[in-house]
Design a protein around this nucleic acid. Structure first.
Length: 554
RNA sequence: GCGCCUGUAGCUCAGAUGGAUAGAGCAACGGACUUCUAAUCCGUAGGUCGCAGGUUCGAAUCCUGCCAGGCGCGCCA
């Protein structure tokens, strides 16, 4: 709807210029908005005001020129007016709207899809939690955001790959192995001092028990190094399996799990460091190798190889991101916890120094989650091992509620997640508010089927009966969905879909309370049935983007 | 000290590329179920968009400075 109007305006501008009324053909991009105030029409454009400078004309004069040259082949415009400083307001005929319903019904699951990303390969890397413990609530938010961003991109035609990077090398894995080994010894009757820097959670004990069951006491008889390694391997593997399962329960699966260790094993880290040396961005100082990230806008240089000869985490990341681009991705998106934001400049530097345009690398920062119960903070200490896992949250409030709530805020805003509210089945809890729309409509459709009205066959006669204000508002909202998807995608902001759905749900509930779908008049009933069926499809499509189910009954 | 994020109704938050009179929900108060699911709806009330300048036809939105809160500033990951 909006796009066809844009065409009309652009054509009018060209014609006006050809006719010599406008002085230059230098036009701004046509922008169209939906005025909040409906006395300003269905749509409005500020084209005349934006053109004033280039045309050296008064905005209202330009507006008049547009009106004089406007064509309307589909006869959808009722009237146009010039208003205020130079807005052009468009009032559409009531008959312009109902065809949208038909379009939604016809396109079904693909309504909202587009091809704006066609031919672009894009990778979204998210969660990537260290395999040293189960996922917690914060990871859940990152997972929900990352997966929905990927869904949005796919919907817009991008070729998307989801990837999880496993930090399965380095000191933390060693620590993991040590933690498990100590618990093993403890279980076998030794008295051990369990150091503070080891992982404290109960899951370490569980892993130790499982390992003893599998291997018996043979384990502790090995040399320390050997035993730690064995424990680490076993534990990391088990934890990753658990993470994978949690994510699956959460409705998320990855196309690829990428091992950090593999970057060492196949020499990629070595190679990328050599390459940086040859590009003269590495230098040796105090026995360590430094990357001159300051040449690329970072505030200080960063170490990639330590004095002791070990590479840093940053070195792995350089190799990893280089590999992403070598695999042919046009865009690379990392979803990170906001506490890593200080890492962005050096990572961007690394991308640029590796020979790739830094704009091709983007980071979505996800702010932290404050877990509450009855409005009071739930204690969360990673030190103490006393944190609430994603699995526990899913078990308590359900995956749908959790995912929806994670997406009720801009990912750059911190989020209060109240377990009590998440379980409530009231207006406080927007998941049910939206899902209820789907269930209610399903109920109407069942009822209609009982009455022999199962075929939603659309015709102009039925469409012409959709004249109530609430109906036109609903249809307008449906028409807005594809734009909402595109805007959310371009901004990598899935929460906009959440808000779109809440708004559509509000419009539907109001309509439902005021008008009956199934009534005496068969033609009217059919028209309304098509309308609510279309609403149901858009609700379902939107919930699918969020990874939330659309139930037929509640 | 430097950097990033945040500051909008009593509370929790939306406000795409700058647009016309700044919006929801909750909480408060008053109403609507013999009819397609009341997990719903309708109404009332609520504002110096942190503060001060600037840019322009026009600023919650862009720029500068300040104030408040969060996070980050390791040869850790």
């Amino acid at each position: 709807m909006k796009n066809s109007l844009k065409e009309l305006i652009a054509n009018a501008a060209r014609k006006a210029h050809a006719a010599g009324v406008l002085t230059t053909a230098e036009f701004p991009a046509v922008e169209i908005e939906e005025p909040k105030n409906d006395t300003h029409g269905d749509f409005a454009t500020n084209f005349a005001m934006l053109s004033a400078k280039a045309q050296r004309m008064a905005p209202r004069k330009i507006a008049q020129a547009l009106l004089d040259h406007m064509e309307d082949p589909q006869a959808m415009i009722l009237r146009m007016e010039i208003a205020g400083p130079g807005f052009v307001n468009f009032f559409l005929k009531p008959t312009a709207w109902p065809p949208v319903v038909q379009q939604v019904l016809a396109q079904d699951q693909t309504y909202g899809a587009s091809a704006i990303g066609a031919g672009v390969r894009i990778q979204v890397e998210f969660v990537s939690a260290n395999p040293t413990g189960p996922l917690h609530v914060g990871h859940g938010r990152g997972a929900a955001v990352g997966d929905s961003v990927a869904n949005l991109l796919q919907l817009c035609g991008f070729d998307v790959q989801r990837e999880y990077y496993i930090n399965d090398s380095g000191r933390q894995i060693q620590t993991l192995g040590r933690s498990v080994l100590l618990r093993c010894r403890e279980l076998l009757g030794e008295t051990v001092v369990f150091p503070e820097e080891c992982y404290q959670g109960d899951y370490i004990r569980d892993l130790a028990r499982a390992l003893i069951d599998a291997q018996g006491e043979a384990l502790v008889r090995r040399s320390d190094d050997q035993a730690v390694l064995e424990c680490a391997r076993f534990a990391a593997q088990a934890i990753i399996a658990g993470i994978r399962q949690d994510l699956e329960t959460f409705g998320i699966s990855f196309d690829r799990w990428y091992s950090e260790q593999s970057l060492y094993d196949n020499g990629r880290i070595e190679r990328s460091l050599e390459e940086l040396k040859s590009r003269q961005v590495l230098y040796l100082q105090d026995g360590a190798w430094w990357f001159k990230t300051t040449d690329f806008g970072d505030e200080k240089d960063r170490v990639v190889v330590r004095q002791n000869g070990l590479t840093t985490y940053f070195a792995s990341d350089i190799a990893y991101h280089r590999d992403k681009f070598e695999r042919g991705f046009d865009r690379v998106i990392d979803v990170w916890g906001a506490d890593h934001h200080g890492y962005i400049p050096r990572m961007r530097a690394a991308v640029e120094a590796s020979g790739y345009a830094p704009e091709r690398f983007e980071v979505v920062l996800v702010q932290l989650v404050n877990l509450l119960r009855d409005g009071l903070p739930v204690a969360m200490g990673k030190r103490s091992g006393d944190f609430v896992t994603l699995r526990e949250v899913m078990e308590e409030v359900g995956s749908d509620a959790a995912r929806f709530i994670f997406l009720t805020r801009d990912h750059e805003s911190p989020l209060d997640f109240d377990l009590t509210v998440a379980k409530q089945k009231t207006n406080d809890n927007p998941v049910y508010y939206v899902q209820y729309v789907h269930a209610r409509i399903a109920s109407i459709l069942r009822k209609a089927a009982e009455q022999g009205l199962s075929d939603l066959c659309w015709d102009d006669a039925a469409g012409a009966r959709l004249v109530e204000v609430e109906e036109i508002q609903l249809i307008k909202a449906l028409a807005r969905y594809p734009e909402a998807v595109q805007a959310a995608t371009l901004a990598l902001a899935p929460h906009r879909i959440t808000f779109f759905l809440m708004q559509l749900a509000a419009l539907f509930h109001a309509y439902y309370n005021k008008h009956r779908v199934l009534g005496e008049d068969p033609v009217l009933s059919r028209g309304r049935l098509c309308l609510v069926a279309a609403v149901q499809k858009v609700i379902r499509n939107g919930l699918t983007v969020l990874g939330v189910g659309a139930p037929d009954q509640m």
